[in-house]
Design a protein around this nucleic acid. Structure first.
Lengths: 122, 122
DNA sequence: TTGACAGTTGAGTAATTGTTCAACTATAAT
DNA sequence: ATTATAGTTGAACAATTACTCAACTGTCAA
């Protein structure tokens, strides 16, 4: 344990552990991007949309009926998902069909659900 | 395509797809819990803490120095992580050491990072 | 018992965010 | 061209939330 004088209100830390962790922890930007990625999945409306699109491509109206929300609300959330490259879309006449753009997402959702289910049994 | 009269502002939907998706989509509560889980990971401070704890157990001061934040701010976020069963802790004298409580989290973080890295090459 | 430090907690504040509303664009049909 | 419907977009509002600050508890040492 060593004295320190950082901007935080701490006086004693385990500097050996700190050094080790500083070396191995991912870059600031990568962690930031990762947190942003999880933040996008961390809204129940977007999570429902993602699950639905994982099962089948759907148009905005389909999603609006499924979630019992307005087209506008769905479209806003699809826009967020689009910005984060989680969904892709194709236009067919007046309709726009959305689907998942990345296979990782399914795996992440499944792992997350495992965690949820396991926690429920504690 | 069929006429509908839901509370949303849609008139025509693909009812066959809707029926299929409704049958397969997870329960409302499970999706809600999952979104909450991702929401917890979706903050850069908490994401940094989780990465750090994945590398080594650390006390509050260690984390405060590592992230250059106050003990209070760290403690609040640890509290959130605790509530969501993502970290566990042990007291040793005046210090409290935190560590990850669930092996799923590491896998989920790694999958998420894969997604980020892949996206960066697009 | 008193002082020092690690950590927690609750209230308050500033910033973020999900939805609504209204106006808009795009496509197709008459 | 006009009308109708699918979808998008920006502003505004309400709700959430991350951090600060100050006061607090818990543990150890003298």
């Amino acid at each position: 344990m060593e004295k320190t004088s950082f901007e935080c209100d701490c006086e004693v830390v385990h500097s050996d552990i700190l050094e080790q962790v500083k070396k191995q922890i991912p870059e600031e930007n990568d962690i930031y991007d990762l947190a942003d990625f999880f933040k996008v999945l961390g809204d129940s409306t977007r999570a429902k949309i993602m699950w639905a699109l994982d099962l089948h491509e759907m148009c905005v109206c389909d999603l609006a009926v499924l979630l019992n929300m307005t087209k506008s609300a769905i479209s806003h959330q699809l826009s967020t998902l689009k910005e984060n490259n989680l969904v892709k879309f194709r236009r067919e006449g007046k309709m726009v069909f959305y689907s998942l753009s990345d296979y990782h997402v399914r795996e992440i959702f499944e792992k997350g659900m495992e965690h949820i289910k396991e926690e429920a049994t504690l």
